[in-house]
């Protein structure tokens, strides 16, 4: 499904701020994998997602989706393969446009945007049906400006927008980090539901070890631009936070460097 092959990436090369994130990163996702990604600050989790999405370009190596090389495709052309949800709830939707307008933008993803009227009565009914599945009461707020919704509601709509075209790949970049615990749990529940119902392949970055363990069928841990743990199947099901921390210090030779992950 997704193949990251020998990817390297350095920011600000040749300056005092040079930061080498990846030297040789490789990762393969199988069809239907729901992979949670965990790691300390600066491990390269978000950078990996942004490289896959095309927000950054790789220095070396290649990225393949379903066998097709997308390494040189610009971000907007890769969008037809993937849905994305960001950490900041404001990033995933257009604040000063209506809920239905936001959904229609996602609805056009992957085909040419022409002079067709964007939202017909039938589209509206379809959006309502989909919003109803979130059970947040948003089906009655199609013509509310997105900016008036709460962070959790916006993330839920962003998730819907990311999945409504059944993408080959779903990229979740700490999409619950900015939410309060109760809302975060609700959004994660919706995430699970949408991934299950649409049989999606997903990559979810999180700071929360418990979430990383509880969700998905495979867990990878990153440190300093390398994947130091890759656990799936029965072994993943039996994981605990303590075991994970121990494995981390064993393989990386250092303490886990994120307070946020330890406290939550």
């Amino acid at each position: 499904m997704l193949e990251i092959k020998n990817v390297s990436k350095t920011f600000n090369e040749g300056t005092v701020n040079e930061k080498r994130v990846f030297e040789d990163l490789s990762l393969t996702l199988n069809d239907g994998d729901f992979v949670t990604v965990i790691g300390g600050n600066g491990a390269g989790k978000s950078t990996m997602l942004n490289l896959v999405a095309g927000a950054y370009t790789v220095d070396g190596g290649s990225i393949l989706i379903d066998g097709e090389d997308v390494t040189n495709l610009p971000e907007h052309k890769r969008a037809k393969y993937m849905g994305r949800v960001f950490q900041d709830p404001r990033t995933g939707t257009a604040s000063d446009m209506w809920v239905e307008e936001n959904m229609s933008i996602a609805d056009s993803r992957g085909h040419k945007r022409g002079l067709r009227w964007a939202i017909t009565g039938r589209d509206r009914e379809r959006y309502k049906e989909q919003l109803k599945l979130l059970s947040l009461g948003l089906e009655n707020r199609l013509s509310t400006k997105m900016g008036l919704l709460s962070g959790g509601q916006r993330q839920a709509v962003t998730l819907l927008m990311a999945t409504m075209k059944k993408p080959k790949l779903l990229l979740l970049d700490e999409h619950t980090a900015a939410l309060d615990p109760k809302t975060a749990a609700k959004v994660l529940e919706i995430t699970d539901q949408l991934i299950r119902e649409n049989h999606l392949t997903a990559l979810m970055v999180t700071h929360n070890m418990r979430d990383a363990i509880a969700h998905g069928n495979r867990l990878i841990m990153m440190h300093a631009g390398r994947i130091i743990l890759d656990i799936s199947g029965e072994e993943k099901k039996n994981l605990t936070v303590e075991a994970l921390l121990e494995k981390f210090s064993q393989t990386s030779g250092s303490e886990f460097s994120s307070d946020r992950a330890l406290l939550s």
């Binding site: 604040s95 446009m97 933008i105 056009s108």
Partner: peptide, 22 residues
């Protein structure tokens, strides 16, 4: 229209617009 809405979303949220294939 779809094209017109994509112009509006470009002005409203550049990052989201690219992520949605605009």
């Amino acid at each position: 229209t779809e094209l017109g809405i994509s112009l509006r979303s470009t002005g409203s949220n550049l990052e989201m617009s690219r992520a949605q294939g605009i």
